[in-house]
Design a protein around this nucleic acid. Structure first.
Lengths: 208, 208
DNA sequence: GAGACTATCGCCGGTTTGGAGTATTCTGCA
DNA sequence: TGCAGAATACTCCAAACCGGCGATAGTCTC
């Protein structure tokens, strides 16, 4: 199954060029392109692409605003900023808005495609590695306080006991539940918090 | 020279009863009583008592707040909380605010007078259950910050990674160790910290 | 009434962790 | 020189944990 890519870019030549590049690469499919942020917001959700290449300089709504909205609508969506500028301010704003990758337009086609793969696999392709750490640090800062808010009442209760050091069996007894149920809740908690162990979950719970 | 005692208590009967009790005991003198925290703050400093019996539940400013203020004004003053509650929260808040004794209202008169003497001599009279709670709390508090100091260099390093959510194998790779070695260290850490899981160890490491 | 979200419980299979014990090497100190 | 502590590593065993799967039942919404 190819990686489905969408493009938001106002320059016709660049947009078409990217589209051709992507469709010409095995494992990639360009499902749609949009010349404006407004257009993207209107039609992109129906396409459900895996990855979006987003220009920053767009007429009307900026690419950064568009990222913020798209992330709100489709949290799973991976977004890569595509720009001629490399200034800290735009990078920073894009990341806060929810973009996970940030590459320059002058990036060679092969590297660009690698970047899309990387992004789709959970990476953060960027001009240099230092920026990647910045991404993680900042996103975690913003998320860690928000992620725990997605938990249900029950899940929160259980997590609070996990974060006190109790084990499944003990929590089950406290709540008069089967330990299987506790495990199920815990599995769901892990998914929501994107963690894989009770220690990691505890750290998120403590906002550490 | 008798021990000069003041009372802050909103219930008239209790306040008068205590006053009579104190004045009827040799070696004690009740110099003043106040029905509210505000009153006490205004007039008590002029009386310069040795000991204050303080109710927690007062109309307006709470007894705990009053303790904080009195201690600021008269650091030498010894204060004993007198209350019907023995919940952890109030006990700790009172102690932090500056109270040195904490006894229940149902305490027999003779014991109460002993407590006042005790307090005046630098002791900390408290009901036995409360004493136990305080001791335990302090032991835990003192330990959690001291226990981690007993760890060796290596153990601290490893614990720091455990507390980031890594598992044994990953830590082993980072330090170029056998994962068996990591587990040996971890077991020694558990013994020193008196815990039984990585989550509990993490909590100690974070002083939580 | 179909589709969601939530809470509950279970099974299977595999990995990780904890507990107990032993052993070797090295270093520093009395 | 010898001993204590620290770091390394291993074995055996059982418990706990994790991931994926399915299942039921209630509630709420469209």
């Amino acid at each position: 199954m190819p990686i489905k890519v969408s493009i938001v870019e106002d320059n016709d030549q660049i947009r078409e060029g990217l589209s051709v590049l992507i469709n010409g690469s095995t494992g990639f499919q360009c499902v749609a392109t949009y010349p404006t942020a407004e257009n993207a917001l209107k039609y992109l959700p129906a396409q459900k692409p895996d990855v979006v290449l987003m220009d920053i300089q767009l007429p009307g709504m900026s690419g950064i605003e568009c990222v913020r909205e798209l992330k709100r609508l489709l949290p799973e969506l991976q977004i890569m900023m595509l720009t001629i500028y490399e200034d800290d301010d735009n990078v920073f704003k894009s990341i806060v808005a929810g973009a996970s990758g940030y590459v320059l337009k002058k990036t060679p086609p092969s590297e660009l495609m690698d970047g899309i793969s990387d992004l789709h696999n959970g990476g953060s392709p960027m001009s240099d590695r230092i920026a990647r750490k910045v991404v993680q640090a900042f996103q975690q800062m913003g998320q860690s306080s928000r992620e725990t808010e997605n938990l249900t009442q029950r899940e929160s209760e259980i997590l609070s006991y996990v974060a006190k050091g109790f084990q499944d069996k003990e929590i089950a007894e406290k709540f008069f539940l089967s330990s299987e149920t506790v495990r199920t809740h815990l599995r769901n908690i892990y998914k929501k918090l994107h963690v894989r162990s009770r220690t990691e979950a505890t750290l998120k719970y403590l906002h550490k």
